[in-house]
Simulated scan of single mutants.
Amino acid sequence: MAEPILPGPLAVRVRAPAKINLTLRVGRPRPDGFHPLATVYQAVSLYEEVTASPADPGVIEVRVTGEGAEQVPADDHNLAHRAARLLAYQIGEPLGVTLRIEKAVPVAAGLAGGSADAAATLVACSLLWGLGLDHQDLLPLAAELGSDVPFALLGGTAVGSGRGESVAPALARGNYHWVLAFADGGLPTPAVYRRYDELGPTPPDPFEVSAGLMNALRNGDAEQLGRELINDLQAPALDLMPSLRKLVEAAEEYRALGVVVSGSGPTVAFLVASQADAVDLTVALSASGLCRSARYVTGPVTGARVLPT
């Protein structure tokens, strides 16, 4: 890990994207308690923003505004706080930072908003503290912080393995139109995995991403991709939040190309053919009473990136 080089700028602003899982296959728990995953991530145009500014040595302060800010801890239970602390620990210096997080991703929604905050924090603090670290340098720390943090650094479309932290860019073409339907309330990821284990599913065989999905991405074929969407955590998410069933079933009525619960839920992602279809579906879902709100996004987008301050 690099040593501090020069004092950094007075403030650094970084944004990082939410993700959806185009496919998520889940195996039985490993001895360490984590479930092995075979997944394909896609970063979408819904962003968290983190602004890092100097603080006294050893002081890490977190301030949160925006979507669900009242639900987000500001202490070391916050993943961005932990990211800053981990980076300072690796450097071996009592570095300080104030982190201002502007949230747009709902909390506990299966979209990895907290992971996006952590990825943005690693990039922002590296610049603020003059460490000279690039995304590749930060990937090992991102993997320590959580399964989705490395992907939030990289963005795009990528295949994930291990517990999700090992990511490799996927050969993919085209841009995709998604409508995200946000449910009332959240689903904590550990609770969904516990329910998955309680339901006693048979792990997928073979335990890998389907060739059909990868072909769809290589060809930029949205219709085929819609048919290939699958999530092994969808059943436990629907079991824990039965109201999601009507939302998933609405895909046929609204003529979506495909539908899937993202990650551990409860956000439901609808794939549609065009921007016009996405706008129509966003309006329809918002008025349906089936969800709290809906938002049109596109993917893939880049990972954590520095913005002008």
Rank of each mutant, 00 (worst) to 15 (best):
A118I: 11
E208V: 02
L199T: 08
L229W: 12
P169S: 10
D239R: 13
R194I: 01
Y193V: 01
L233Y: 06
N219E: 15
Y176D: 00
V105W: 05
A158W: 05
L244E: 10
F182G: 05
L153R: 08
P204S: 06
D134C: 01
G155R: 06
L217R: 09
L154A: 15
V105G: 08
E102D: 13
P204G: 01
T189S: 15
A235F: 04
D134E: 02
S161M: 06
L244D: 08
A142P: 04
D148V: 09
D137A: 13
G113C: 04
A237K: 07
S115M: 10
C125P: 15
D232C: 11
P106H: 02
A181E: 03
L180W: 03
D205M: 02
A181I: 05
H135K: 14
L213S: 05
L187E: 09
V167H: 08
P204I: 00
R194P: 01
L154N: 03
V179H: 07
P150Q: 05
R218P: 02
S115N: 12
V149N: 12
A108I: 02
A118V: 08
R227F: 03
A112V: 10
S166I: 14
L133R: 03
Y196P: 05
A109K: 05
G162R: 05
S161C: 11
A168P: 00
A109S: 14
A237W: 11
T189Q: 10
T189E: 09
I101P: 06
D221M: 12
T202H: 09
L240Y: 01
